[in-house]
């Protein structure tokens, strides 16, 4: 199983890096959020600095945008799976001693790795926008780990939902259906303290909120919130388990 998983995982990673257009899109999308949404909102955030906990909105936004980006990389994992089904590559894989679960794991980890590519680029962009970072190496490491948990969780969720689909359009539709509500009901773009009660409840369970607030706490110098990291690890574990069993049962070959 290790041999197959490593082979298929490396295939995902190599294919990402050999496709500069996909790589560019992966990085440009969150950068746009930072550049346009961040710049457009920063004056308002400055006026409500007590709510945001900082007068630098980009510093507030960066962990949120990185968290929502981990959500969107899940879509790429689904698209790559559907491409393999449509072009018959899934058959090539399965007419070897490789199980459907291994294919799922390789896609989930492959998509998560693609998500991590965004971190250095976005941090560099935030530096250019005047954000200063004073994180310890441990804090950097746990931040990356938290984002990795989010990416694994969301890509597993996407793969589970689209396991039986062979339609190119499905990942896009699912993404639209999931991304908007999860992003806007989280603390990714603004503090959740101003939410109506029902939205606060959603936000309380929303992994993006945990991921955004975990990163924000590090960027704004409040240290590591281990409980948030634990929640994200649990989210990743549960989604990975669900995706594993769903794929074994429902992953369509063609």
């Amino acid at each position: 199983m290790r041999s197959q998983l490593w082979g298929l995982y490396l295939r995902e990673v190599v294919r990402t890096f050999r496709n500069p257009f996909v790589l560019l899109l992966t990085v440009v999308q969150p950068f746009m959020w930072l550049a346009f949404f961040g710049s457009g909102f920063s004056q308002f955030a400055k006026e409500a600095a007590s709510e945001f906990g900082t007068s630098n909105y980009i510093a507030f936004l960066l962990p949120g945008v990185l968290s929502t980006s981990m959500l969107s990389v899940g879509m790429f994992g689904s698209m790559s799976t559907i491409q393999d089904k449509r072009f018959g590559f899934m058959k090539r894989i399965l007419i070897t001693p490789t199980s459907k679960e291994v294919i799922f794991l390789s896609k989930a980890f492959g998509a998560a790795t693609r998500g991590l590519v965004q971190i250095p680029v976005m941090v560099a962009a935030a530096l250019a926008f005047g954000v200063t970072f004073s994180l310890s190496p441990l804090e950097w490491a746990v931040w990356v780990l938290a984002l990795l948990f989010g990416a694994i969780g969301f890509s597993s969720m996407f793969l589970a939902i689209t396991a039986s689909s062979t339609d190119w359009q499905t990942p896009g539709v699912v993404s639209n259906f999931i991304t908007m509500p999860l992003m806007f009901s989280s603390a990714a773009l603004y503090p959740s303290s101003g939410f109506p009660v029902w939205m606060q409840w959603i936000s309380k369970f929303n992994p993006i909120s945990y991921s955004a607030e975990f990163g924000r706490s590090l960027v704004l110098g409040s240290g590591i919130v281990w409980v948030d990291l634990g929640y994200l690890a649990l989210f990743a574990g549960v989604m990975l388990t669900i995706g594993y069993f769903v794929s074994a049962r429902w992953l369509r070959v063609e």
């Binding site: 041999s3 298929l8 190599v14 496709n19 058959k91």
Partner: peptide, 21 residues
């Protein structure tokens, strides 16, 4: 014909070797 077009001939063989362990 089903191959990974992003890969070279050798890389396709490498992947097949991985899949066959």
């Amino acid at each position: 014909v089903i191959l990974d077009d992003e890969f070279s001939a050798w890389e396709n063989l490498w992947l097949q070797a991985r899949l066959q362990d």
